[in-house]
Design a protein around this nucleic acid. Structure first.
Lengths: 143, 143
DNA sequence: ATGCCTGCAAATGTTTTGCACGCCG
DNA sequence: CGGCGTGCAAAACATTTGCAGGCAT
């Protein structure tokens, strides 16, 4: 996992510095958590105290350019980052609970047929998608 | 259209001040355009020069609370606003062109079956959704 | 008078940028 | 030396908030 990313960086002529390695490790360890830049910064600082917030932002931008990361936004005014699943053809989907704010990821490919419709009816060449359902999660329904 | 919104404001105990009316008119006149707060402000200022940016933000927040508007984000770092279609059961979908940046709206209800699956398999009560396809629009494909 | 609504300016929070320094080939 | 990568501080944005005043009831 890490070694594959290392390879991708080298192929793009980036060095895997200690700061970048720590950042990637934090992202891998918290894959499900949709961390913000600030949250990532604080976690990285535990491993590698000599790091600045700007470096985290620069690393996140680089990883996004390399399509290792996806930048997502849930309308809470700040960017969050989400690891691309290896081998996944498409970006996964999210279930955002309007009551407790939790975000659940779902991997199923739900949009195969829908993409065919979009490509055919709207002559739009689909490369990727973002799908988030807003609703109430199971926990909150039981309350 | 405007009169219906006026009624909604009154029912929620808000006054339709000249600033608010201008803002709503700008939104109605540019329904397809996914304007940002700043863009809306500049357009409103042409009609009603005595208006401040803060008032536009406050009006947009109010309209969002009343579910007349939807706040959307296309990962470009600022919020955009989109009128809810009257009578539409669900939020419409977007086609974002990665080459020219244009955003096309599509109204078709593409997610009916998908929502059934989500509710059943993930025990998640769906209230709304956000779906954006990233790809290449017809114009850019022809280039 | 009371309370909603406003413009302006200041504050806030996030992200980007400028710059000088350090490190490695 | 030359250039990438860095930390820090400042700048740049987007958005929110505090406040004094205005207007309608």
């Amino acid at each position: 996992m890490l070694s594959k990313i290392k390879k991708q960086l080298h192929e793009a002529n980036y060095k895997l510095t200690p700061q970048r390695e720590s950042t990637v490790l934090v992202l891998l360890e918290n894959e499900k958590d949709h961390l913000s830049a600030e949250e990532i910064y604080m976690l990285v600082k535990l491993k590698t105290p000599e790091i600045g917030l700007a470096t985290v932002y620069r690393t996140l931008e680089m990883l996004t350019d390399l399509k290792i990361l996806d930048k997502v936004s849930f309308n809470d005014g700040l960017a969050r980052y989400d690891m691309r699943k290896e081998g996944a053809k498409h970006f996964h989907h999210h279930l955002l609970c309007l009551e407790c704010g939790s975000i659940e990821e779902i991997e199923d490919d739900l949009l195969g047929e829908v993409e065919v419709i979009v490509e055919h009816d709207f002559h739009f060449k689909v490369k990727d998608h973002r799908l988030t359902f807003h609703g109430v999660c199971q926990k909150c329904q039981n309350k």
